[in-house]
């Protein structure tokens, strides 16, 4: 009897934490507070600036420019959860919807035209662990807003701050820097790069990994 009892107990002892661990899921806070934008200054490092926008589809305006200066974060909302690496805690990184929005905005603001789906082209890849101007949320925020001297345009005044933070969350997801439980929605487009959350944070891959067609 004793032996019989011990087995389920031991199994339970293993299963319980396992169950608890596997129950870990996205802790969704419904009001994510974007970080304060004053972590960046008003200096534009790049001579290239995103300019006039023109809607070219019949369905919708492609972009939603803010046109204004950097907005302060909305007051009175408590930070959602524990801070991520870096100076700034970007609550959007714990929110799948926000990361999905970041993906949508990444396409709408033509980030995809230079960085493609993470592999790079005109701009460097975003899916590896090489970061010329830093991989922390506030560094990526600054890179988008200020621009960078070797060709990254400044989007200051073109994207509202909370959307930039959403793009930052998506960009960091491309190299697997976000928690696995913040799974983005299914991508309905042509099979491209592996889904962001299946990425390992690893060096650039220059030789063939599998055959992707």
């Amino acid at each position: 009897m004793k032996r019989l009892n011990r087995f389920p107990l031991a199994a339970l002892a293993i299963a319980m934490p396992l169950a608890v661990w596997s129950c870990k899921r996205e802790e969704r806070s419904f009001r994510v507070q974007p970080p304060a934008a004053d972590t960046t200054d008003k200096v534009i490092v790049s001579k290239l600036r995103a300019g006039q926008m023109m809607a070219t589809t019949t369905q919708r305006a492609a972009t939603e420019p803010s046109g204004g200066p950097i907005a302060p974060p909305p007051p009175g909302i408590a930070p959602a959860s524990k801070p991520s690496a870096g100076l700034v805690h970007n609550g959007y990184e714990e929110n799948a919807y926000a990361v999905g929005e970041g993906n949508r905005l990444y396409l709408a603001y033509n980030c995809v035209g230079c960085h493609f789906h993470g592999g790079g082209g005109i701009g460097p890849p975003l899916m590896d662990d090489t970061w010329i101007y830093g991989s922390n949320p506030e560094q990526i925020f600054a890179t988008i807003v200020e621009g960078r001297p070797n060709g990254m345009p400044s989007f200051r005044g073109k994207i509202v701050d909370y959307q930039v933070w959403q793009i930052v969350a998506y960009v960091r997801s491309m190299s697997g820097m976000l928690s696995k439980d913040v799974a983005p929605g299914r991508d309905d487009h042509m099979a491209g790069a592996p889904p962001p959350n299946s990425m390992r944070y690893q060096p650039p891959q220059w030789s063939t990994v599998g055959t992707i067609r």
């Binding site: 493609f116 789906h117 993470g118 592999g119 082209g121 590896d128 042509m190 491209g192 790069a193 990994v209």
Partner: peptide
């Protein structure tokens, strides 16, 4: 350009 081969759409699809 030190692009990453895992994204077949990189460089307007030339990477693949």
């Amino acid at each position: 350009g030190d692009l990453d081969v895992r994204d077949p759409t990189g460089a307007l699809g030339f990477v693949n």
